[in-house]
Design a protein around this nucleic acid. Structure first.
Lengths: 222, 222
DNA sequence: GCCTCTTTTAAGGAAATTTTAAGAATTCAC
DNA sequence: GTGAATTCTTAAAATTTCCTTAAAAGAGGC
């Protein structure tokens, strides 16, 4: 799951990025309105956190612009303003939800999950064959045996399983899991596929991560 | 024992929080009705103190909403209203008890204990492996050897054990145990995990607090 | 006010993760 | 079969995160 944060205060931005990374989201940060708009238009995000008061384009303006071309990506406003009028204004501009600063991270997380749920349909637990991924508790089981994965391994497996039975190209993998956009010259994917295959090879299950030569990888249902 | 206070007046809220904290309750405060409802839905509280007159959703409305999904968590109303009709109204909405403002803290405490008594039978003692936490007496035993913990140490261990076998992210820990919401740049958690591990490392038991790199910690049952 | 205990901060070293790199192995086309 | 391209595997470098310790700051008791 990729999230874009548009926020100029470094403190808050870092706090959000770290917190969301702990929850295994892939996070990008834009520090002003125009950059945020640009990134949102170039990349596909699953959700956007948008500060109301940012330099350059205002949050509300970014929201309006975005909604002209993309009407589905959920947008949550972060705002210090709290009058009814402001909230209405924000929601009319196309936001899906808003949260008043200061907020508790857990509350934000809950709201994010609400937005993503409507999008994904109750997917806190992903399953493929005998693998079970619990996104809420960050746990992975194969035949009820728990497997410990690092952050990157988890993110990669999540991406593969979310796209099960579809070929995941190297480019899409590197963009979604590593957030790298122009460097084709790396072999991290190969290494991490290898890590995953090794770690998941327990309990007698077959290897469900198949190589698609010249293209990428695929996680197949069996 | 976790208590949620839904109260907009800071004076009363602080008074309650401090008083209950002294009695070893873990206290969260919500300042309006909708926040209160949300927090109650996200977290598991052992009891909810609900002011009648609060901004946003009214107390009675929060109560009704909550009872739709959760019928067990005791709810005590704090109210200035005192006519028979109002009391009936509150109890019909699903509250377990009410107390009229202004009240003596002792009286509130007594009512809270009445509500928790049924619960307390089951929940005053938390267990994990050979650790036993008595929340009422604030005592901790490992293999019957008593271990002295400070308040923060106790709170951290309680949080970990309440969430046993689930990864506790750093963000969640810092929010629940320290009540810090925007400061990602602190290493208190590391230090306190270290304190706990040292103090709990007696009687030959294994270390059950595991590190989940990049995410947080987990207390595992063995 | 002084002492003690708790809590927080800070920093160097240790450990795990992530990335890079390079040789071995595999696949595919001819 | 041979060669070229691609992927696999391994090892080690680079980076990040965590552990540990010590000392400072804060809280409470006398």
């Amino acid at each position: 799951m990729r999230i874009l944060i548009v926020e100029d205060e470094p403190g808050i931005a870092n706090f959000l990025r770290d917190g969301l990374a702990e929850e295994f989201f892939a996070v990008d940060v834009a520090v002003d309105g125009s950059k945020g708009l640009e990134m949102a238009q170039i990349n596909e995000y699953d959700l956007i956190l948008l500060d109301w008061m940012i330099p350059g384009l205002s949050g509300i303006e970014v929201c309006r612009q975005l909604r002209k071309t993309d009407s589905t990506t959920p947008i949550i406003f972060l705002t210090a303003k709290d009058t009814v009028a402001d909230v209405v204004f924000g929601l009319e501009a196309g936001a899906n939800d808003y949260i008043k600063k200061p907020f508790k991270f857990e509350e934000l997380l809950a709201r994010i999950r609400v937005q993503l749920r409507t999008k994904e349909g109750e997917q806190t637990i992903l399953k493929l064959n005998d693998i079970e991924m619990n996104l809420a508790t960050h746990q992975i089981f194969r035949n009820s045996i728990e497997i410990m994965l690092t952050q990157k391994e988890f993110a990669l497996l999540e991406f593969l399983i979310r796209n099960k039975n579809k070929v995941c190209t190297r480019t899409r993998i590197i963009e979604h899991v590593w957030d790298i956009h122009f460097d084709a010259d790396t072999s991290v994917i190969d290494v991490y596929i290898n890590f995953l295959r090794k770690k998941l090879d327990i309990g007698g299950g077959t290897n469900f991560i198949h190589t698609v030569r010249g293209v990428g990888y695929i996680a197949k249902e069996e």
